[in-house]
Nucleic acid binder design. Structure first.
Lengths: 218, 218
DNA sequence: CGCCAACAGATTGTCGACAATCTGTTGGCA
DNA sequence: TGCCAACAGATTGTCGACAATCTGTTGGCG
């Protein structure tokens, strides 16, 4: 188990359409795709150097994840997310993140992969006193992944992975709070490591709710 | 708003790949596809009378929803779900269904579409004293749809719709309890209509938990 | 007799081309 | 001038064909 991040075989036999979907999300993360922007298939073909079939499959996936919307004869565009919708999304995220923290804390004794969790906590600590946005997002992704892995609930893992995508889309201006968030997430990770189910869940939910309330104040 | 069920234009301009995905889920519902069964693209093409592109897009969607698993050069197969995994899935379902019931109950005064909810409750009442499995599943789907519509939370709607698919896959042998379930769901619907947030959520979660416990006893 | 390599069939991954649909523009007409 | 119809460009929807990969089988060799 060398890499804690989502696997991406370095240069061999990738399903291509999965790679495209991932790249589009990364592009969204990097701000290259704006919400509401239209995604023309031909453009994506040129950009990624693949055929339209792969692009279409990637778009279908992103539609199911809620990243893009596809209107039948009119193509795909990045789903626009208003602060209100982001707040509603966080209502769901709160539940899922809480369940993940609680379940992971309950199973922490069962053995599997505390190493990845400790690694993620370390990254978050590194972000606690200033870091680039990309580093923080990566660290958070690692924490989510570690919790999902430990929780060992396939359905939760699936939904949490989708959630991860949405959270970043809800970032309307939290640049100032990034360090606080990193500290909070690290604390949650430590609670999980300590096996404190109830407290871990409560803190996880509180973390998400704080974000939601801050969002509703705009 | 004529049809409370998920829209399916009768015979005009269907996105085709979406139609295929829906048909596969229906086939699963009808028991024509067994868990673990392999889905060969060419077979599906013949069965639905479309090209492979549409089939592939449908499979990509179903993969994101967690219905099928796709192994890179080896095709797609229906995801096998053990009773243990079904129980884990229900842990997540419990949260989502509870949130849907609570939110719908809170917003019931806000106006939109109590008619569809009342309709779903009527269908469930009809199932309370004996009905075919298909009728019950349809009624339950309508209840879920009505709650999602009233809750008016896009993210919740999306995940609840995915959940709906999984629930039916977790039906390992509830034939005898079907009538009880119908009664419970109808009661939950009425609590929502009455605007009883807390009680609606509690009953919704209790309903799912009963199913989960029954499942773990096997 | 058992094991490994080469082969044949089946299936998936990818690309290019054509048809159907939509969007914005032009031209005619009251 | 203002409005509606026809048109051209762009984009999506669909299909067929070929290449790459995998699976199971056959044949040869130790």
């Amino acid at each position: 188990m060398p890499s804690p991040t989502t696997i991406a075989q370095k240069s061999a036999a990738l399903p291509s359409s999965e790679e495209i979907a991932r790249a589009i999300v990364q592009g969204l993360e990097a701000g290259e795709f704006a919400p509401g922007q239209r995604l023309v298939e031909a453009d994506l073909c040129l950009r990624f150097g693949v055929g339209r079939q792969a692009v279409r499959e990637a778009l279908q996936r992103l539609k199911m994840v809620g990243v893009v919307d596809i209107v039948p004869n009119r193509g795909a565009h990045i789903l626009h997310m208003t602060p209100e919708q982001a707040a509603l999304t966080l209502e769901v995220t709160e539940l899922l993140f809480g369940l993940a923290a609680r379940t992971a804390a309950r199973r922490i004794a069962a053995g599997s992969g505390t190493a990845t969790l400790e690694h993620a906590i370390g990254e978050l600590d590194a972000c606690a006193d200033g870091a680039a946005a990309g580093d923080y997002m990566r660290a958070r992704r690692h924490l989510f992944g570690a919790l999902a892995q430990i929780a060992d609930n396939p359905e939760l893992t699936r939904l949490l992975d989708q959630t991860r995508v949405h959270v970043l889309r809800g970032q309307f201006g939290f640049a100032g709070l990034r360090q606080d968030h990193a500290r909070e997430l690290a604390a949650i990770g430590r609670l999980v490591l300590a096996g404190q189910c109830a407290e871990a869940e409560a803190q996880a939910r509180a973390h998400v709710e704080r974000i939601r309330l801050h969002l509703e104040r705009i």
